[in-house]
Design a protein around this nucleic acid. Structure first.
Lengths: 338, 338
DNA sequence: AGAATTGCTGCATACCTATGCAATAAATTT
DNA sequence: AAATTTATTGCATAGGTATGCAGCAATTCT
């Protein structure tokens, strides 16, 4: 029951604890024979190094904190899984923090600091500049995932949401729609702001107004927003939704009143979550370059952890439009024209 | 940049480190004045206790390890989020491990042990009896979530899958179907075994055969399995799927070939994930009592952590059938009969 | 006033590992 | 054979907190 320590091994073999420690870390200076003896006994006695003691000694916890909100939105579990398995493969452990509301992120940080995380990754949540400063004072590098700070005080990697919004606008413009709308995500997220503003700007440049409905990145919000849109006689025929879940809600709302998606009305999402490809929805959407975003943020973070702390650093990775069936096909007139 | 420690506080105030430590933990023996002075300075200097050092000293890491597979299946993110936020509220931190394949769970455990986790929760994955023994030798309590060990060597809380299977069988039997099928989940999971055997047994008792198609808890598997089922002329009219995702795949496959779900064919799932309620699917399913399962497993685990390590302990919590539109309604004849 | 109690604080050490430096023994060089 | 180098190991300490026990001053009791 009592944990076996390196001292136990040392006593058992009649050697010093330091030799044991070095033998177990394959230090070249230890005689091969001794090394093997130690490693063999360690195995036999079921020795497990104490990471706490090691951290204390080395001043490195080998811990990466991940704080994530919206964990139940289908996009993020994939991110979380990839992150943790890649970190594990690289020898890091992950300390997980979840939060619903934005304001709680700040409350969580002291805990991150207590556990001496070597680095911090914040997904789909932001960071007060006060806390960003605290972290930097402690020398804990942090990168934001899919969100960036207004004051650019911390590094971040995002999907190129502005580019994505433009892509959608152009795509819809190219297939002769006449009344455009946007169903928003949660306000005060850079994600929503960027997708909306770029989409809207582009359409306005082309001479169109765009109707706007509030939302919050959920199915229910998408459903309700679509109902509102359909309540008027001149309801839109081209709708960009802040994310896929919202779009799916919108599709279900349209179907419920017999409006045909992909012929009478076009709907585009953002993310390309697995459900977007499901037969019932077949949603045209912008695919977030998740793998690239994950790799990039990991690289950024670990570099900062291992080398010198780098300054603020923003990286935007473009998404790609994946065409499915929720947008009107080009009619012959438009085709001839192009 | 240099972290401020309790020693720094002590020096600054000209008192001993032990007094600082006690003052910060609100030890009654410390004079109120001193306590306040210390706490005030701690705040001012931005003191953060070092959890590593504390763990080393107290022999308690306040860490709960969670290992989870199938993180991307929609059921588990919810579980993970609930678990972490409840643990946080109770003062615990969570060390997250994810794994795809079963065999990797064993490889992960040494890491759990290195970090001195006070307890371990394994979701949707199992544990070799060898490792269960190792853990118990280390005195680390473990509870399995939604999976249980064949040899009952570790505690577990599960949905009552057998009860659920029976519920489905009875429900389908009650609405005059004639050809039954089961689309399986991953083999070698207690979840799949229990759902299947109870369902099948009940139907066989009632004199029916049940056709079986392999699967693995995914949309694609459900889709493919349904295609196989529909390939024959006497395809089933009542299908129980190992989980909701599988059922949704099956529904899409049926729709693709024009088979009407809820009238020509009945499909029932298991889990009641949010998508089951989506308009396009409207899936009748067994709702897992997630909250109760989470609370129960947490209670079980934390009790074992804080008190004496308890022996093996199994808990099965019944699910409830939620009726939606994917099953044939009772026709008048059947209704008259009952 | 002396004795006992109470209130508050400090000393010393445990927890476990990693690592700079010194020490010893063995091998090599001159 | 003496001097230098190489190989291997041990000593001692840092890292930050918690805590049993002792110490001291102030208060209360007899």
């Amino acid at each position: 029951m009592a944990r076996v320590t390196s001292v136990d091994l040392a006593q058992e073999l009649g050697i010093s604890q330091s030799t044991v420690s070095r033998a177990l870390s394959n230090d070249i200076r230890i005689a091969t024979k001794t090394r093997e003896k130690v490693q063999h006994l360690a195995l036999k006695m079921g020795y497990t190094p104490n990471a706490m003691a090691r951290s204390l000694s080395t001043q490195q916890s080998k811990l990466i904190g991940i704080v994530m909100s919206e964990m139940t939105s289908p996009f993020y579990p994939f991110v979380l899984e990839k992150l943790t398995s890649k970190l594990h493969a690289l020898g890091w452990r992950v300390l997980l923090f979840s939060t619903d509301a934005q304001h709680e992120v700040d409350d969580l940080l002291p805990l991150v600091l207590e556990y001496q995380c070597d680095g911090l990754l914040i997904a789909s949540a932001s960071l007060s500049s006060h806390m960003a400063e605290t972290l930097s004072r402690h020398g804990t590098p942090v990168v934001l995932f899919n969100r960036y700070a207004a004051d650019a005080s911390s590094s971040a990697v995002c999907c190129d949401n502005r580019g994505g919004g433009r892509l959608v606008a152009d795509y819809l413009l190219g297939r002769s729609h006449s009344r455009y709308a946007y169903i928003a995500g949660r306000e005060n997220t850079s994600t929503n702001r960027d997708r909306e503003s770029s989409y809207t700007t582009r359409l306005e440049q082309a001479g169109f107004m765009v109707q706007r409905e509030a939302g919050n990145f959920t199915y229910e919000a998408g459903f309700a927003a679509m109902q509102r849109l359909l309540a008027h006689s001149d309801s839109p025929d081209a709708i960009f939704c802040a994310n896929d879940i919202t779009a799916i809600g919108a599709i279900d709302a349209a179907r419920e009143v017999g409006v045909k998606v992909g012929t009478q009305v076009s709907i585009v999402g953002f993310d390309d979550i697995p459900m977007a490809a499901w037969g019932a929805y077949n949603l045209t959407t912008i695919r977030q370059p998740v793998e690239a975003m994950i790799d990039s943020s990991l690289q950024m973070l670990l570099e900062a952890v291992e080398n010198t702390p780098l300054g603020s650093n923003l990286r935007f990775i473009p998404g790609v439009l994946v065409e499915r069936g929720s947008v009107k096909q080009i009619n012959t007139k438009a085709k001839a024209k192009s």
